[in-house]
């Protein structure tokens, strides 16, 4: 049984603002899945649907085999959730926030809370409103992890944090939950974080799933080719090539993304267009994101 199962999800906001179109994927036990996408791609909506905070207008969401809208308490008891816009009660002291969460979760693990408390060095008597942004996020993470959730959902959890704080934050979550065999579903804009932590990525674009792949597999299977722009290399013709997923103009040249290894892409270009010595290389995740997600917009607009 999958830990998370999104099946043919459609969701729209007001005035036909369709955010998700026919989105389907699953997350398996112990997987760390990074959810990528541009702003407004629907990452937060998807994670809020997973938590049962929103109801899918079409399709089905299952968490740990349960419908989060029908059985919200059972789901939330087994899930930890931290989001960028999560508001901790500003007037409470850190100790009181922990007390409150301890009271809400029967599986609260005092030892985990203690370890994290030591690691984060958060002053227990300080009020939430007096803490820095990073500290507040650490308190939220502590609350989400200390009850040993089977699934941790992080929605842009490290947004706005400096690199050191971000690394500390994410590595702590992954390390602690990996020990317990938990599953993690997180969204992020930081490709370096995703590359370092995720073992699988799902990239959302135009309301749908553009890429759903193991990270290692992804690195091997995508390549970037740069060809000179000219009458022989019109974007339409290039896009028609087998395995070409994106074409983008960059000055006098065109950037092509292939769902092929670099050598296979070079051979294809030579065979189909007679372009010898085209420069093909493997793609870093950040470049892949820009080429795949950012590259389509100028062409379509």
């Amino acid at each position: 049984m999958s830990v998370v199962d999104f099946h043919r999800i459609h969701h729209a906001y007001e005035r036909g603002n369709q955010v998700l179109r026919d989105v389907s994927f699953t997350v398996e036990r112990r997987q760390v899945l990074g959810l990528l996408g541009k702003n407004g791609a629907g990452k937060t909506t998807l994670l809020r649907l997973a938590m049962g905070l929103l109801k899918a207008q079409e399709g089905e969401v299952r968490l740990l085999g349960l419908d989060p809208r029908e059985r919200p308490l059972e789901v939330k008891l087994r899930v930890g959730y931290v989001s960028e816009d999560q508001i901790l009660p500003p007037a409470l002291r850190v100790r009181q926030v922990l007390d409150f969460h301890r009271g809400v979760f029967p599986t609260w693990d005092e030892e985990v809370a203690r370890r994290l408390g030591e690691r984060f060095e958060i002053p227990s008597e300080a009020k939430i409103k007096t803490l820095s942004r990073g500290q507040v996020r650490q308190v939220a993470l502590l609350c989400a992890i200390a009850h040993r959730p089977e699934l941790l959902i992080l929605d842009e959890p490290a947004g706005g944090l400096d690199p050191a704080a971000r690394r500390e934050f994410l590595e702590t979550s992954i390390q602690l939950l990996n020990e317990a065999g938990s599953t993690i579903l997180f969204s992020s804009h930081y490709m370096s974080d995703v590359e370092r932590l995720a073992d699988r990525i799902v990239m959302l674009h135009d309301g749908g799933v553009l890429v759903d792949s193991e990270l290692d597999e992804l690195r091997e299977s995508y390549s970037l080719a740069m060809v000179p722009a000219g009458p022989e290399t019109s974007p339409e013709r290039l896009r028609a090539l087998a395995g070409c997923t994106s074409v983008r103009r960059r000055g006098d040249s065109l950037h092509l993304v292939f769902e092929l290894e670099p050598q296979a892409a070079e051979s294809l270009l030579e065979r189909e267009l007679g372009i010898a010595n085209s420069r093909c290389s493997a793609l870093a995740l950040e470049e892949m994101f820009i080429e795949l997600v950012g590259g389509q917009a100028p062409e379509s607009s």
Binding site: V94, R95, L98, E110, A113, R114, R115, G117, E118, F120, E121, I122, P123, S124, E125, A126
Partner: peptide, 12 residues
């Protein structure tokens, strides 16, 4: 400021 560092873990 009370319990500046590590105070969170102190009670336990």
């Amino acid at each position: 400021v009370r319990g500046r560092t590590g105070a969170l873990a102190a009670p336990s």
